[in-house]
Design a protein around this nucleic acid. Structure first.
Lengths: 215, 215
DNA sequence: GTCTATATGCTGATAGAC
DNA sequence: GTCTATCAGCATATAGAC
């Protein structure tokens, strides 16, 4: 989105720039997730990325810029994934697929989910525009599909927006609140089997709660 | 839990100590919720409470102490409320009651919920012991009740722990992620009517998803 | 492009007068 | 008990040698 880079034909010696940037971004996601925006220090991010602190500022100028980049990466990932939800016609299949997709993202990118959650909890100062435009439009489009299903008698009447909120909350909680879930399950960390049980429990309850004919 | 105070018979002139402490605690909850632990400054908390910063340190000694107090208050409030869930025999009534109770807490004390959420997201460094003991015990006890309901054929078989996680996630999201929910609903803030719709949507889906006989 | 050394500003905490 | 003035430490960001 920002400046157009040079033709990139230098290619002389050391580890290239994109690699270093990716390394810093990954470290930043981890540190922001663990300590929050203010609690994260550029020193710790640089250390984790294995670069001197001055390099981090050379590549990203400010801590705030770096944070924006991390947020943008996460939002893009989620949005790309959400596109998959569009194409499915059958409500049972669509919802089941979406729940499992979101759970997989919670499993595979919990750090990104935590950075996002942190931003929202603190009032979304950097994402409020995105929430009110892109996300709202996507949600409204999905809500219309759900309303069609209801009108066709394929699922019971429920508020479509709150149904979507429900799916977000129940799936993301396995990333954001993973420590708490693990604790009440009596484990140190969540494993693949726990995510499978979660998927089955969630789809079972939500689908049985929605489908008109039952079973 | 800490030290026993003096007999409190001074009662001479200015605004008394408990009042000031409560003022600081309330301000702290708000600032910690909005900015996180590190992002919150004692200066801002003191300003919001209307006391000089030195007074804050006189009453609570350190920022960390103050944070612990805020966390303890929240946990106590939630735990006291959770006791209500115990006594109800009928699964439909018990779950419906618990969902509405949790939603009411999200409505009435969103700031406390946010401080708690923040703590968990960052790995629960100050609450991990509580999660693994008190909360786990409470959850296991509830899970046993749910398993009885299943054994008696009163609700369909689901994983009791994941069901409880589901209820926590879906109700607390209206506090922690209130900004996001409001945004996709096209409003600036959530109102009583939104919480009522949430309660109906959640109980409808969860109860229909659980009850054996349907309808 | 990379890195060491440093400047500048802010925050938690306290000293000490009232 | 209350508050002003201040200190010590730390974090962001940059200057400037390599």
């Amino acid at each position: 989105m920002a400046s157009a880079r040079k033709p990139a034909l230098k290619s002389s010696k050391s580890g290239n720039r994109e690699e270093t940037q990716a390394l810093i971004l990954s470290a930043a996601e981890q540190v922001f997730a663990e300590f929050g925006y203010k609690g994260a220090t550029t020193g710790r991010i640089a250390e984790l990325a294995g670069v001197p602190k001055a390099n981090l500022h050379y590549y990203f100028k400010t801590k705030e810029n770096l944070y924006h980049q991390v947020l943008e990466d996460i939002v893009n990932t989620w949005f790309a994934a959400a596109a998959e939800f569009d194409s499915i016609e059958d409500p049972e299949e669509a919802i089941s697929h979406y729940v499992r997709l979101k759970l997989r993202l919670s499993r595979e990118r919990p750090l990104g989910s935590k950075v996002f959650a942190n931003e929202i909890i603190h009032g979304a100062p950097n994402l409020i525009g995105y929430l009110r435009t892109t996300l709202k439009d996507w949600t409204d489009a999905k809500a219309r599909v759900i309303e069609q299903w209801i009108a066709q008698g394929r699922i019971r009447p429920v508020d479509p927006h709150h149904l979507l909120v429900m799916i977000w909350a129940t799936t993301q909680t396995y990333a954001d609140f993973g420590v708490q879930v693990a604790a009440v399950l009596g484990k140190d960390d969540l494993e693949d089997a726990d995510f499978e049980t979660a998927a089955e429990t969630l789809t079972r309850i939500i689908l049985r709660g929605l489908l008109a004919g039952a079973d």
